[in-house]
Design a protein around this nucleic acid. Structure first.
Lengths: 193, 193
DNA sequence: CAGGTTATGGATCGGTCAGTCAAGTATCTA
DNA sequence: TAGATACTTGACTGACCGATCCATAACCTG
C-alpha cells in the first residue's frame, strides 16, 4: 500500500450516478463529472476505468439503490397497488428535489442501450425482474381475493412495466403531473376486483 | 430568381428525419446528415438554417406522416382496438425495415425535450392530441356498446398514451417483441365489454 | 449576351470531447 | 528514514463537433 485515496468511492459514484441520471451519457461530459464528484480526471480514470465503465458502475448503483428496493418490496408480499404508487409518485413530479426526474434505467434504455450491449443487458434484466415480481405479487393478491378474476395477470404485468417506462420518459420530458398520475392510477385500478 | 436547387427539399427532409429518428439529435452529426441526404453542408444550412431548425422540420415531418394519420383514423371513427394495433405493431418489432424502431416523438421527448422548449411543445401537443382522440373514440365505442361500462375512459386514454410511449422506448432499446405485444394487447383488452 | 443572384463544395474556424502523459506529492513498509 | 507505491494535478493530444468563409459554378432576367 501507499498513499490512500482522498475521496470516498461510494460518494463519488453517487455523484456520478446523479450526473448521468440527469444529463444522460453523452450529455454528461468528463468536465461535468469531475465537477460533480470533485475528483480529478486522472483519479476517476484510475478508479473506474473509462467513461463507459463509470457509467455502468453508476447504473448498477442506481439499480441497487432505487430499483431493487421496489422489486424486493413486491417480492416480500407488500400490497401491489400501494407499493407501486409509493415507488412511482416520486418519479413523476419534479417535487422530489433530492433526485432527477424519471428512472435512470429507462433513460439508459432510451439513449444508451442501442450503442452499449452491457447497458442493454442490464436494462432487460432489470425490467424482466420487475415484470416477474409484479406477476407473482398480483397472483398472490388474486389468491387473497384482492384482484378480479377477469384480469389476465401476465398481460397486466407487461402492461404495467410498459406504463412505468412511458411515465418515466414523459416525466423527464416535463409532462404535467396530473396526466401521469391518472395513467398510473388507471393501471392500478385495472386490478380491482 | 437565380440558380435553382439541385435537390428535392421533401426528399432531403425525409432522409434527415430518418437519420435523426434512428440516431437521435446528438447522435446525428452533420456529417451523417450530409451523407444521408447527399446534400452539401452549406446547402443544408442555407435551406434549413442550423441543426436545431433542421431537426424541428424533421420532427414536424414525422408528426405529419406517421403520427397524424393515427390520430386522424381515430377521429374518423375507426375501431379503436384495430387502429391502435395496426399502427403500433410496425413500431414494436424490427421487422419493419423501412423505418427505424420506436416513435420519433418519444425519442425526441427522451433526448431533446429538456434542452429545447420547441421540442417540448411539439411533444406535448402531439400526445395531448392522441389522448383526446383516444378518449373520444372510446366514448363513441362505449355508446355503441363495444366498451365495458366499468372502465374509466379518461384514465384509460392516459394509460394508453403512457403505454404507447413505454413500448416505443423499449422497442428502440431492443426488448423482445413478444413482451411488447402482450402489453399492447392487454391495454386494448381492458376496453372489452 | 451581360449582370445579378443563388447554390455548391471544400477549406477552415474556434470549441469541446474522451482520454493520456508526466511531474509532483503524500503515505506506507521495511 | 529511505525507498517503493499509489494518488493528484494540470497540461496536452488527436479527433470530432457545429458553424462559417470563400471561390466557383449554374441559372434567370433584362
Amino acid at each position: 500500500m501507499a498513499r490512500p485515496r482522498e475521496f470516498d468511492t461510494d460518494a463519488v459514484l453517487d455523484a456520478a450516478m446523479r450526473t448521468f441520471w440527469q444529463r444522460g451519457y453523452d450529455g454528461a461530459s468528463l468536465s461535468d463529472l469531475t465537477a460533480a464528484t470533485d475528483v480529478g480526471r486522472q483519479s476517476l480514470y484510475l478508479a473506474f476505468g473509462d467513461k463507459q465503465h463509470l457509467y455502468l458502475a453508476a447504473l448498477d448503483r442506481y439499480r441497487e439503490h432505487f430499483f431493487a428496493p421496489l422489486v424486493a418490496a413486491l417480492e416480500q408480499g407488500a400490497d401491489v397497488r400501494v407499493t407501486l404508487r409509493e415507488a412511482l409518485l416520486p418519479i413523476l413530479d419534479g417535487s422530489c428535489t433530492d433526485r432527477p426526474a424519471g428512472c435512470m434505467l429507462v433513460a439508459a434504455a432510451a439513449d444508451r442501450a442501442e450503442e452499449d450491449p452491457q447497458v442493454r443487458v442490464r436494462v432487460a434484466v432489470a425490467f424482466a425482474g420487475l415484470e416477474e415480481a409484479l406477476l407473482e405479487a398480483a397472483q398472490r393478491a388474486r389468491i387473497a381475493g384482492l384482484v378480479a378474476h377477469t384480469v389476465d395477470l401476465t398481460g397486466w404485468a407487461a402492461l404495467t412495466v410498459a406504463t412505468v417506462q412511458g411515465l418515466s420518459v414523459m416525466a423527464a420530458a416535463g409532462t404535467p403531473r396530473a396526466t401521469l398520475v391518472r395513467a398510473l392510477d388507471t393501471a392500478l385500478a385495472v386490478l380491482h376486483p
